[in-house]
């Protein structure tokens, strides 16, 4: 089992996103560096539109992730309601 990882800007806009990720992926760990937050999670990490919208209190398009994303590690799958990063092994 390996970690997947996502790195996001550490700014106001990403805050709700980060909160949603931590809520939906309780096994994840965070590492904070100046300007960015790196979130690691064993095998798979899921971002759900609904959770992000609840955190932000407004509609959120999954593709808006592109505005906060700094880096990732793992295979990506995205659709209208989710964005996942996973390893297959």
């Amino acid at each position: 089992m390996s970690n997947v990882s996502i790195t996001l800007y550490n700014n106001d806009e990403s805050r709700g996103l980060i909160a949603a990720i931590l809520k939906d992926n309780p096994a994840s760990t965070t590492m904070r560096m100046p300007g960015v937050v790196k979130i690691d999670c064993p095998n798979k990490l899921t971002i759900l539109r609904e959770t992000v919208e609840n955190e932000l209190g407004r509609p959120w398009d999954v593709q808006q992730l592109h505005m906060s994303l700094v880096s990732l590690s793992g295979m990506v799958d995205e659709d209208d309601d989710y964005f996942t990063i996973a390893w297959n092994h």
């Binding site: 100046p34 300007g35 592109h66 700094v70 295979m75």
Partner: peptide, 19 residues
């Protein structure tokens, strides 16, 4: 730092393409 992280936000698309 602003151009760096801003450029890096494109990078995740590039990484996914590579993979």
């Amino acid at each position: 730092v602003t151009f760096g992280f801003s450029a890096q936000s494109d990078e995740s698309r590039h990484m996914t393409l590579g993979l």
